[in-house]
């Protein structure tokens, strides 16, 4: 069996707000093998970003906390690590690409300095001269001219800014890269360029990657396995083949696929999922999807379904038992 770079077991995360406790992640199980790419798919509020922030241990202080569960990074339990220990892991073992390239760069620091900062913090032993050389190498790698490292973020276009953010995340050659909607803010032609580049770099560094997205098209092109999240739980996961071609699916997955306009077919109407995402402060009993589910059974209303396994394919639904 292949070694696992990331293993999340029965993770619960909640945020404490004025309106009550937000149950963002509710018993999440995830595994990622070395060198693979996992696509984490779900709509706004499904808990995708919270999951990644828990792995990075960047949940907002005081408000957000892990209440239960373990996160194993490369076999080591990082759930209870102290901040100083975690700081050593960030950048080298695990690193993150944030969602919005426009706001995740510091506007008053030159691009070169921002990339150098990552190296100074996490690989100080390199020395100043080596860090400078390394910045040039990294810029070249993501397809930017090294002469431009003295420029500031506002002088770059959105696609270029995202390349810089990716360069920063890969600067220390992390073992695991968490990419939170890296291409959502980009135009399709630029998105294609950036995805192609990320795939290439992932192979060069043999990095494992977790790609968060709501776009099932992007997943089909870049990932090896897929996990679909709804209301803080993984409701279906498996290899690309399991999710895209197998016969059985969670009703939510089916709804998600039906909502996407199909370019190859001529249907006039779309068939969306009825209703809205449940409020995470007040989740429904039983299966969280039951109020929107077209195939809702009686048992769905009060009992949370267990995961049914078909080889690599896992579905959490009462229809499959």
């Amino acid at each position: 069996m292949k070694k696992k770079i990331l293993e999340i077991k029965d993770l619960y995360v909640e945020y404490i707000t004025e309106d009550g406790i937000v149950h963002a992640v509710n018993g999440l199980n995830l595994e990622l093998e070395k060198g693979q790419t996992l696509g984490l798919v779900g709509e706004t509020g499904a808990g995708k970003t919270t999951t990644v922030l828990s792995i990075m241990k960047l949940l907002p202080e005081q408000i957000g906390r892990i209440t239960k569960g373990t996160i194993l990074l490369d076999g080591n339990n990082i759930t209870d690590l102290r901040e100083t220990e975690m700081q050593k892991l960030r950048g080298n073992a695990v690193s993150m690409i944030f969602q919005d390239p426009m706001t995740s760069l510091n506007p008053v620091l030159s691009v070169g300095d921002q990339i150098a900062e990552v190296l100074e913090l996490h690989q100080a032993e390199l020395g100043k001269k080596r860090i400078d050389e390394r910045v040039d190498e990294i810029l070249d790698m993501v397809g930017l001219q090294k002469e431009r490292k003295v420029e500031y973020p506002h002088q770059f276009s959105g696609g270029m800014k995202q390349r810089i953010v990716i360069a920063m995340a890969l600067a220390c050659e992390p073992k695991l890269l968490l990419a939170d909607e890296p291409t959502t803010a980009l135009d399709v032609t630029i998105q294609a360029q950036v995805l192609e580049m990320m795939n290439r770099l992932k192979d060069t560094f043999s990095t494992s990657m977790m790609l968060i997205t709501h776009d099932l098209g992007v997943v089909a092109q870049t990932c090896d396995s897929v996990a679909i999240m709804y209301a803080g739980r993984v409701i279906e996961q498996g290899t690309l083949k399991d999710i895209y071609t197998a016969g059985r699916h969670h009703p939510y997955t089916i709804g998600l696929f039906n909502s996407i306009p199909d370019l190859t077919k001529d249907t006039k109407r779309l068939s969306p999922i009825k209703g809205l995402m449940p409020d995470p402060i007040n989740l429904p009993n039983g299966c969280a999807f039951h109020p929107r589910c077209p195939e809702c059974l009686d048992v769905c209303r009060y009992e949370m379904p267990e995961e049914s396994c078909y080889g690599t394919h896992k579905i959490r639904c009462h229809l499959y038992k």
């Binding site: 399709v188 032609t189 997943v219 895209y244």
Partner: peptide, 18 residues
């Protein structure tokens, strides 16, 4: 533009025309 749209199907292969 058309070839850059990621299609949610497996048999479509990777983007060729970037």
């Amino acid at each position: 533009l058309l070839s850059a749209i990621p299609i949610p199907k497996l048999d479509q292969g990777k983007i060729v025309n970037i």
